[in-house]
Write a protein that binds this DNA or RNA. Structure first.
Lengths: 204, 204
DNA sequence: GAAGGATTCAAACGATCGTTTGAGCATACG
DNA sequence: CGTATGCTCAAACGATCGTTTGAATCCTTC
């Protein structure tokens, strides 16, 4: 039972963990509030409903994550000597750093579940709030891969993001290494993902 | 409400559709039996429990799918002039054909959900019953990519399967085209996937 | 056509779900 | 001190969950 931070923060933390482990339907508010050490009614008091809690779980991470992604993209977008790998780095590194924090290490799993859900409400929420991020990255990919048709480009970006989401959702448990090598290991992981995605995007 | 086939088959069909749309927890036996046009108690009578029904939904498709994959792999494995693309074709084409059947078009979505679940019981079931398929493909990839370390090979296979699962789980609805061009479109899709995966696996 | 196993059926079981309620407690402000 | 205000609490709400039951019905076999 977590006893640090405000009630809202404890609920959000427990929700992230349990949504990652058991899914949005599978994790009940009773398991969730029990793990957070708060009263059952606190969820509806602070968030209004379970569905709105789900939204806040996403917002808490994605606001910062996408801001970092856009900041990193801004440093390379449009520059004449920018390589494909630089853009992928801007996309991948913020997510990977999130996966290696003590807090937030399970969030990418929540995100992977959201993609698998194919839930219209959730997809609409993500598209409305964070769709512009993917659009900016897509525009930069299009600039660096001018020989690809629009259809081919969308295909490959979809495949690349699928690979990255799949890989990053497996983290937090499997890929966690010892503290001394964590930084080096993370850098190695970034390079693995970038090499794979760059080659796929750049395929003949 | 489906009224064709035996009770067991109608349940399996409705279960596949609803599991794809709403998830294993989200789809209730009442929705499921109602869509199948059978009595609620029929699930427990014919399958024993909801969990065993889930297993049968997987078995019904994966037995045939993996048999096709292994048969296609056997035609190229170990041959001196086999290309990476041939092995990927053996892996991808059977799954894509399943995605374009009227029946079974939603199964890859069920499979994508299972991957996102990270459920130990389900992963153990899949590993015990179909793990040898992935092992045979991995061995052939290792033969064709001798310059990759074992760690690098596993990384790339994981990323490639993630991309393919992600892409194929989006089918059945989005990518369905008109009947006349369906065969040509499917072939085009196979080539997209193979090109991307081959380039990723083969990256410098 | 009677017997008997296989299957279907409506109904109910206890458990658990998300949500609501109203009393109780805390802290801050007049 | 008195009283708002924000928050927590136990308890209960109706709904829905997976499962079980026992009678009704179908279907085969002699």
């Amino acid at each position: 039972m977590n006893r640090t931070g405000s009630t809202k923060e404890r609920i959000l933390g427990a929700a992230e963990t349990l949504f990652a482990q058991r899914g949005f339907d599978g994790a009940s508010l009773r398991q969730l509030t029990s793990a957070a050490g708060v009263n059952l009614a606190a969820v509806n008091y602070h968030f209004g409903s379970k569905e709105k809690l789900v939204e806040q779980v996403f917002r808490r991470r994605l606001d910062a994550l996408n801001a970092q992604r856009l900041a990193a993209l801004a440093k390379v977008a449009g520059k004449p000597d920018t390589r494909l790998e630089d853009v992928l780095d801007a996309f991948i590194r913020p997510a990977l750093e999130l996966s290696h924090e003590d807090e937030g290490s399970l969030f990418m799993r929540v995100l992977a579940r959201a993609f698998a859900e194919h839930d219209d409400g959730l997809r609409k929420f993500l598209s409305e709030n964070y769709g512009h991020v993917m659009r900016q990255f897509t525009a930069e990919f299009a600039r660096l891969l001018p020989r690809l048709s629009k259809e081919e480009l969308y295909w490959r970006i979809d495949l690349a993001t699928g690979a990255l989401t799949h890989a990053m959702s497996g983290f937090g448990i499997i890929q966690r290494k010892s503290d001394v090598s964590e930084r080096a290991h993370r850098e190695q992981t970034v390079q693995h993902l970038i090499r794979f995605a760059a080659a796929g995007l750049n395929a003949t």
